[in-house]
Design a protein around this nucleic acid. Structure first.
Lengths: 140, 140
DNA sequence: GGTAATATAATCGTGCGCGATTAAATCGCA
DNA sequence: TGCGATTTAATCGCGCACGATTATATTACC
């Protein structure tokens, strides 16, 4: 357990995350999206019309990050933001037609990333599960 | 290979990195450091007096991120920034006495993180190596 | 029914990351 | 020797992250 960067699991995660975002960058540039914006849209493609809080629980971000991000998506015409009629504290985020259509334009991305990883799907899946388990342990 | 967040290796890395930084936060708050500042100091604790570029190659950051960060470390009295006499393009970053002393104050951190991970050292090491290999593949 | 407690999103300030550009020093090469 | 190419930091603008606070709506409870 040394204090050198190459030995640190935290740095491995940190630098791998940046490397991953570097792979996504050109793919997302084609869609005019940033990486966090892509994550939010991914959550909405699975389940449309979610509150800011519900989205935040999935992408692990708070309203202080999400609110400006969602305003940018709204300005781009990808989502709408409307106060919930039943509970006016909540703001519902809903995909526009353009936002829904972008799902098809993004459909090729996962395969590109898989290929770039140089791993078999099952190896990548196993690694993902280990990283997810570590994350959940760290969060507890 | 679905498009759901829990299935995405990129999101596993992204959220695990944030969870890791959340673990470091209270430990680094005691030292008055941010996480990237801690990485830079870690590199300097291994090898003092490095150029901005050499540091950047280790922590995987460019001068546009490092220069302001290093200025903050200089303001806090942890490092000095001086133009290299032989090659005036380069700026040498050198630890002050205070910066060197902080290594001892940070010595307990790796063990804290290991414990929080809930994994045996050898398991964490194996996971780290897999993540590092993925990072290097993605960078290529 | 009124009021304290809670939940939700928004706002603000600071510090990264990073693409693009700029300024200055050094190097390569005829 | 001179001059274009390269290297190195710094600068600028934008978009996250996140701690702390605020405003408003809802719920709990007496």
């Amino acid at each position: 357990m040394t204090l050198a960067l190459p030995d640190m699991i935290c740095f491995a995660l940190y630098s791998a995350t940046h490397a991953m975002q570097h792979v996504y960058k050109p793919l997302l540039d084609d869609l005019g999206l940033t990486y966090p914006q892509y994550l939010v849209l991914t959550a909405l493609w699975q389940q449309d019309k979610q509150s800011v809080g519900a989205l935040g629980r999935q992408v692990q971000l708070e309203s202080n990050t999400l609110t400006p991000l969602l305003k940018r998506l709204e300005e781009r015409g990808l989502v709408t933001r409307t106060r919930d009629a039943q509970d006016e504290r909540q703001v519902n985020i809903t995909l526009t037609d353009t936002g829904r259509q972008m799902k098809a334009a993004a459909a090729h991305i996962p395969a590109c990333v898989l290929e770039k990883s140089g791993l078999a799907l099952e190896d990548l899946t196993r690694l993902r599960d280990q990283i997810t388990a570590l994350r959940d342990q760290l969060r507890s």
